[in-house]
Structures are given as structure tokens and as C-alpha cells.
Amino acid sequence: MRPSSAERASSGSFELFAWLFMRISGVILLGMAVFHLFYMHFVFGVERMNFNTIGARWQNPLWRVFDFFLLAFALFHGFNGLRVVLDDYLSQRPGWRVLAKTLVFVLVVGLMSIGGYVIFTFPAAANLAAVP
């Protein structure tokens, strides 16, 4: 079946850029996630990992930027993957498809907001003692 004119008009280049984003974020995530895993487990050490040490690490704003991008790429890469899967498996159920995609989108935006809020508003180490 030829896609309806509305479907074509609404998609435009969206699918192209979603596809491109998937490739680029995949490569970036490979580097960032492997680095993060290696650093936390072998350089930093899991046994030292706790609230205070992570708080202290965030004294360096570069770590906040790194964590923010790791979170953003992981969430949106995962979201786009789920969107594609839902498109396939709910292709015959347009109502459920819109509902499922909306729910996942709201969840991703919610997680991104909470994560971003924590990363950028976490008090600097000087005030750590005040944090319970």
C-alpha cells in the first residue's frame, strides 16, 4: 500500500534523521559507555563508589557534562529503538501504537528531566556535608 499523503507529509525527513542519529549515537555510546564501565570498575573501583565520591567527582564540571551526554544518548538511542519496534509490532493497531509511543516518549522525557536536573543542580562538594 502506498503511504497516505498525510503520512508522507508528516514524516518528511524525520525517518532519515532518526536513522542517522541511531548510527552516530551508537558509535558515540560505544566509546562513552565502554569508557564509563572501564573507568568506574577498574580505575575508580566499585568498592569506593558511594554518594560522597560521586558527589566529589561532580566538582569537576566536565564529569557533569560527560554524565549528561551519556544519559541523553543512552535514553534517546533506546527510545528510537523502541519506537521502531513498536512501529513493527503494533503496525495493525494504530490506536495502541500512538498510545504506546506516547507513553514511552513521556517516560523518556521524564527520566531525562530528572537526570538532567540532578546532574546540573547537585550541590558542589563544599556543601556536601549538608546533604543527608
Binding site: P3, E7, E15, L16
Partner: peptide, 11 residues
């Protein structure tokens, strides 16, 4: 190309 780039296209 518009048909191939749309939702049901090559992507």
C-alpha cells in the same frame, strides 16, 4: 525519492 524516504520506505 519521497516515497522511498517516507515512513514505509528504505529506513
Amino acid at each position: 525519492l519521497p516515497v522511498l524516504s517516507a515512513h514505509g520506505g528504505v529506513w
